[in-house]
């Protein structure tokens, strides 16, 4: 590009034209910097309030494996992380086979016309707001799947929330890993057929290993999405305001995200910033946000580096 730029500078003699170009160039640089400003704003606002939070509580209380209840000043983060872990695990157990299966069918078996119809429908599922899936989780998944089929105790549990989140991230896995499988050059498939391999062998032993970095990326991105998902768990998790440490998915519980939602929804003064009792609960929001931000950032960076590898290879 730089040689083109140089030639242009020689051609445009008009000073007004040059100045206009420079002005426009500066505007675009400003726009480019805006995203960096957003990142810095996120990090600064999260850490600043987190430091206030940590300064005002006993840091040892963060890992008591006991109770999360901001109202009585109990901030056991381990409870919330266990909740997030359970929900994410359940979600991935549902979403990985369903998403990968759908991706394999769309990429390898479906005829072009069928694919053209089915893929947009799957994208519709991806476009359904998470609060709607939360409602679906409690009115349908809770009674029909968790209580009837899995004989859980209650409609509201981490299990219900996890299944809802699983449905939410399935289209993400399907779409990213389908792209990865379609990016595998057909010469690989043809070579496999030429060796006398049947279709299933080709898919399982040739296409999927070739697309593995894309598939891993899909799983990472989906896991990050599942950990960051809020409303499904806020509705279906069954706990509001406080939760006890549990490792049983059929119990009610809070995750990092739903704890934030319930703090925000529980005290009306939070956003107004007034209430005297709201002080530490308010700051705990930012501490949880910082933890969440760090975890999802790591997962996303790993996922994105895998996505880049797919792009570079073919």
């Amino acid at each position: 590009m730089s040689s083109v730029d140089g030639a242009l500078l020689g051609l445009e003699g008009d000073g007004r034209r040059v100045r206009r170009e420079q002005r426009i160039r500066r505007t675009f640089w400003g726009a480019g910097l805006s995203t960096l400003v957003i990142s810095i704003a996120i990090i600064v606002s999260l850490t600043a309030n987190s430091i206030t939070f940590l300064a005002n509580i006993d840091v040892g209380e963060l890992l008591t494996f006991d109770t999360w209840s901001p109202r009585i000043g109990k901030f056991d983060v381990a409870t919330l992380f266990m909740g997030s872990l359970i929900v994410t695990a359940v979600a991935m157990v549902i979403a990985i086979p369903l998403g990968l299966g759908a991706a394999v069918y769309l990429a390898e078996y479906a005829r072009p016309r069928v694919r053209r119809v089915l893929k947009p429908i799957l994208e519709v599922l991806a476009g359904i707001p998470s609060i709607v899936l939360g409602f679906f989780a409690i009115t349908w998944i809770g009674p029909n799947v968790v209580v009837d089929a899995l004989s859980g105790q209650s409609d509201f549990s981490l299990m219900t929330a996890g299944l809802g989140v699983g449905i939410l991230v399935t289209p993400l896995i399907a779409s990213v890993s389908e792209d990865a499988m379609r990016a595998v050059p057909s010469s690989l498939r043809e070579a496999s057929y030429g060796m006398g391999a049947r279709r299933m062998t080709t898919v399982v032993r040739v296409v999927m290993p070739a697309a593995v970095s894309g598939i891993v990326a899909a799983l990472m991105l989906a896991a990050a999405r599942a950990i960051g998902e809020t409303m499904v768990i806020a509705l279906a998790g069954g706990a509001a305001g406080e939760a006890h440490f549990t490792s049983n998915p059929y119990d009610a519980g809070l995750t990092v995200t739903s704890a934030m939602a319930s703090v925000a929804a529980g005290t009306d003064q939070i956003a107004g910033g007034g209430g005297q009792g709201a002080g530490q609960a308010f700051n705990s929001l930012f501490f949880l946000g910082l933890l969440l931000f760090t975890v999802t950032l790591l997962l996303n960076m790993i996922g994105n580096s895998f996505v880049r590898r797919v792009r570079e290879r073919y």
Partner: peptide, 8 residues
């Protein structure tokens, strides 16, 4: 940034 959860 695209992967940052909406609560954040």
């Amino acid at each position: 940034l695209a992967g940052v959860p909406s609560v954040v």
